[in-house]
Design a binder for these strands. Structure first.
Length: 348
DNA sequence: AACGCCAGCAACCGCAGATGG
DNA sequence: GCCATCTGCGGTTGCTGGCGT
């Protein structure tokens, strides 16, 4: 029946997000919480569609996101989970809470796929295709014609192989890899394209206990960086415009390891002026933005006329919110540590 | 220095399930 | 039960920077 577009295409900005837009979005979500994305563009004045806002938040701005290189453990997890779950990136991402499905998907497509094909040769691509064909979106018409019984037999075979591979991997690093318990619902689930269960998609979310994270990783640091990355750039831009002759701040530095669109940590000049130190340290984040910076932030975070809320948000709220998030995650991780690897193996 | 190629990644698109009236 | 709308997901696109020629 023709689904209406998620937003009016006219006047909707597309393409990369600017730090200004990020700040506005984060500020709004901080106050109102994620969700109700439809109202985000109108309430913030952002010239973005609701989907774009949601995506930006979930894939980039959301606290607790780890960016940068994938560790060997994460890589192994992805490989085996992909074998187990297919291209259900959201489900895979639920095992790696610090990674977004988009990130994992990109990493798979750009690194792991090649890596695996190099290692395994053509035989693996056959298997890969088999798993891929089970994906909800990629099922061909002939694939969906596979009857339930045939499909389940094949799935059992696949799962047996995947379990084997997973056990192998676990035996290699069972001291460091915290694999979530794999409930039996994984092995009984059908791909949504075949499933007769209308709630098949919801089912995905029931599969697992809260996934475990790498204990050695401080989730806050990355989430703080997500936001903190914006601030120096934001302030730099302000300074640049108001003090174009100043040499103290390098606005043309190329980026640190995270994202080329954001500047590297500010130069000495910034450091002196705003007390910027090192955003990788949680306490430094909260100390790093001086009242001057905060006021600048407040003044400039409102390019649009409809961003009163964002304008009124003190930066300290933002920091507190991030800190609370970090603490909560830390507690979660403590709880999760009690889940032993043996429990997950026992399910096989 | 200029150009083209390629890899990586952020963002978009469209589909499908969930939800509420 | 139907319909409209919202949200989540996976596939794909296109921009950008690095590298080789």
């Amino acid at each position: 029946m023709g689904r209406p577009p998620c937003c009016d295409k006219i006047g909707v900005k597309k393409g990369p997000w600017t730090p200004e837009e990020d700040i506005i979005l984060v500020s709004y979500i901080q106050e109102n919480g994620p969700g109700n994305w439809r109202s985000v563009p109108t309430n913030t004045g952002l010239l973005r569609c609701s989907k774009s806002c949601r995506l930006r938040w979930t894939n980039y701005l959301r606290p607790g996101i780890k960016r940068g290189n994938f560790t060997d453990q994460e890589e192994k997890m992805i490989i085996h989970l992909q074998a187990l779950l297919g291209n259900r990136w959201a489900a895979i991402a639920s095992y790696l809470p610090q990674r977004t499905d988009n990130d994992i998907k990109n990493y798979w497509n750009t690194h792991l796929k090649k890596k695996l094909s190099n290692i395994q040769g053509n035989s693996s691509s056959d298997q890969e295709n088999r798993y891929r064909s089970r994906g909800s979106n990629s099922s061909s018409s002939s694939e969906t014609a596979v009857c339930k019984g045939q499909w389940e037999r094949r799935l059992q075979t696949d799962i047996h192989m995947a379990k084997q591979a997973l056990c192998d991997a676990l035996s290699l690093d069972n001291k460091s890899v915290n694999l979530p318990q794999l409930s039996s619902s994984i092995v009984s689930r059908k791909p949504s394209s075949i499933s007769t269960n209308p709630s098949a998609k919801t089912d995905q979310k029931l599969i697992l206990p809260p996934p475990q994270t790498n204990q050695s990783t401080i989730t806050y640091a990355s989430s703080a960086e997500n936001i903190a990355r914006l601030l120096p750039n934001w302030i730099n831009k302000i300074q640049k415009s108001s003090q174009t002759s100043s040499e103290s701040i390098s606005t043309t530095q190329t980026q640190n390891s995270f994202d080329g669109r954001f500047p590297s940590p500010p130069s000495e000049g910034f450091d002196k002026q705003f007390g910027y130190h090192n955003y990788s340290n949680i306490s430094d984040v909260s100390q790093s933005v001086s009242p001057e910076a905060t006021s600048l932030f407040q003044d400039e975070s409102n390019p649009g006329a409809n961003t009163e809320k964002a304008q009124l948000l003190p930066l300290s709220f933002l920091e507190k919110w991030l800190l609370d998030d970090a603490n909560a995650q830390e507690n979660d991780q403590d709880n999760l540590m009690n889940l032993s690897l043996e429990e997950s193996n026992g399910l096989f």
